[in-house]
Write a protein that binds this DNA or RNA. Structure first.
Length: 570
RNA sequence: CGGGGUGUAGCGCAGCCUGGUAGCGCACCUGAAUGGGGUUCAGGUGGUCGCCGGUUCAAAUCCGGCCACCCCGACCA
């Protein structure tokens, strides 16, 4: 490709809308353009990168036994009501109405459609296992698109769906996909890590995410400093310290004037926070919920939401709390009636707690769960924090931010049961197909690759996904020798099937070098009067500081093998 | 949805407070010089000042409403 003909221009200044590195660089390099909030066009350079990522993913999916197909973006709205997933997607589902006033959804994902397809063709266990995938646009009306390509409303996603006859089959498919994903990240030059995850709106039981550790990441990862435990903070567990059991002492009121927060209570009474019980009020689908947790811990709202199986969860407002007759600051579950009480299991790891008295400016001493109050539900709903103990090995937990570059789910049978996808097993018994799904956002992967690989001059593409492999950069194009040599090398490289961007513009060296660095093409070839004098060209990797000279004679073939040897290392 | 911010040429910005019909840099076009890290000089092209309404002899500027985009939070693969 000749630079002079390339559609798109590089920018010196940073467009004001961008503040993450990948967003700024992709805009400055002329690879993407924003059309509306969370909606982007890909220009030729950006599209070439995307297509390379797509091809790598496709190859790995095929290698794992996946079969590619294509599904519609427009889906009957009823499908979402039937599957029961409409409430959990809610407003993120884009809907349109056709001329017959029939409601349609723009597919945010395709489990419904593919399950309908599969149920028609799979009747027997002999038809399983099955791995089907598609690479296409999905639509989600995100509350807040952000970070350029990192969170958008229309995006290209690879989604593979697995169909198995039994749990062992699902486990096998799941492991195959995890391996395929690892291959994909390696080939794209991304050190992604596998973490335990919450399955969110998709539903299902077990789930893992692939994360790229990055400051700009929206997710928080909790990981162990010594073992391999790692989980999304939404899902992460910790070891809750067990306090010495004392014999239950009688309840006792203590006046606590103007003392409301756990910190204040603990200090006032002179006990550690872990000797107190904290009350937090939530509104779950409009119903008030009373949550009790040990004072040294915080509530993990994702865990709570899953436990309550509600679709909307938020902190209750002051008005709602008052209306329910609760005394914020001095509330406790003792004597509460008509409100659902949910407890974290930490409240059983201690005794004689300090808790509210449901009377303003008053607390109770020696509160003991089960003796003094009962709960409707008890489970782990605590937030794991850095500094806590690892649930696997008790070492210290750490945290960092990450970009979610892939998510795999064991769905189980809830969709196949809802949508009627059954098969007959060896014994002629009808059973629901066991499903899994495995997604990668291509644009996000591209942005993550830039977040991971750049410096203050621009992008540094890994060779495998670079828009071009080689940047051919002749200086002083007015010089006929230079022009001819460059033109010949350009033709030679192309005939060797090297992907080359030929900077045929008669620009000053500074302009050319700066553009080369900004675009981030891995290998830069410079031809100048200087190099020509020694019958050589200068070769420089974008990722390295130093350059070297290569004889002009046979340069194309040498460059070809340079590029190839690098590819083989991946 | 709550809080904050911004909308003036393709991009980055000034002008607005104190009304008089728009300016700078980059990019682009023409010419000349320069030539290993965004070089220099000269001359040009390009804007219904986000939209609608109001005040006024006169609105980018003042007032009201709306819209879009960005950031933080809520939320969310």
């Amino acid at each position: 490709m000749r630079f002079s003909r390339l559609f798109g221009k590089t920018l010196k200044e940073v467009p004001s809308e961008a503040d993450t590195a990948s967003h700024q660089l992709l805009l400055r390099a002329g690879m993407i353009q924003q059309v509306a909030a969370g909606i982007y066009s890909y220009l030729p350079l950006g599209w070439r990168v995307l297509r390379k990522i797509e091809q790598i993913i496709r190859e790995e999916m095929n290698k794992a036994g996946g079969q590619e197909l294509m599904l519609p973006a427009l889906q009957p709205f009823e499908l979402w009501e039937e599957s029961g997933r409409y409430p959990s997607f809610g407003k993120t589902l884009f809907t349109v109405t056709d001329r017959r006033e029939h409601k349609l959804a723009l597919g945010p994902t395709h489990e419904e459609v593919i399950t309908m397809l599969v149920r028609r063709y799979v009747q027997s266990y002999r038809d399983l296992p099955l791995l089907l995938y598609q690479i296409q646009n999905k639509f989600r009306d995100e509350p807040r698109p952000r970070g350029g390509l990192l969170r958008v409303r229309e995006f290209i996603m690879k989604d593979l769906y697995s169909f198995d006859a039994d749990e062992a089959g699902l486990e096998n498919s799941y492991q195959k996909m995890i391996q395929a994903y690892k291959n994909i990240y390696t080939r794209c030059g991304l050190p992604a890590v596998l973490v335990e995850a919450d399955s969110g709106a998709i539903g299902g039981k077990e789930s893992h995410e692939f994360m790229l550790i990055a400051e700009t990441g929206e997710d928080e990862i909790i990981y162990c400093s010594s073992c391999d435990y790692a989980a999304n903070a939404e899902k992460a567990q910790n070891i809750k310290s067990e306090l010495k059991k004392e014999d239950p002492a009688p309840l006792e009121e203590i006046p606590t004037p103007n003392i409301k927060t756990i910190e204040e209570v603990a200090e006032f009474v002179g006990v550690p926070k872990s000797h107190t019980l904290k009350a937090v009020f939530y509104s779950a689908d409009g119903k008030l919920v009373f949550v009790v947790i040990r004072g040294d811990l915080e509530v993990n709202e994702t865990k709570l939401k899953n436990l309550l199986k509600c679709s909307e969860l938020r902190l209750a407002t002051e008005t709602e709390v008052k209306a329910a007759g609760l005394v914020a600051g001095s509330a406790s579950p003792i004597g509460i009636k008509g409100i659902k009480i949910v407890a974290d299991d930490s409240i059983t790891l201690g005794s004689n707690f300090i808790a509210g008295a449901n009377k303003s400016d008053t607390h109770l001493r020696n509160v003991n769960p089960s003796r003094d109050f009962t709960t409707d539900v008890m489970a782990d709903i605590a937030l794991a924090r850095p500094g806590d103990s690892c649930p696997k090995c008790h070492s210290k937990l750490l945290s960092s931010h990450g970009i979610e570059v892939g998510h795999v789910f064991k769905l189980g049978t809830f969709l196949s049961e809802k949508l009627g996808a059954f098969f007959l097993d060896e014994n002629g018994r009808q059973r629901p197909i066991i499903m899994g799904c495995y997604g990668i956002g291509l644009g996000r992967l591209l942005a993550a690759a830039v977040e991971q690989n750049h410096d203050d001059r621009g992008i540094i593409w890994p060779l495998s996904i670079a828009p071009y492999q080689v940047y051919l950069c002749p200086l002083r194009l007015g010089n006929r020798d230079i022009a001819q040599t460059a033109e010949r090398l350009y033709q030679d490289l192309m005939s060797q099937n090297v992907e080359v961007l030929f900077d045929d513009r008669d620009q000053s060296p500074g302009v050319k070098f700066n553009d080369a660095d900004l675009l981030g093409i891995p290998l830069r070839l410079t031809i100048s009067p200087r190099t020509l004098q020694s019958q050589s060209i200068e070769v420089k990797w974008r990722s390295e500081k130093e350059s070297q000279l290569l004889p002009l004679e046979g340069a194309a073939a040498r460059i070809k093998s340079l590029v190839q040897s690098f590819e083989c290392n991946l």
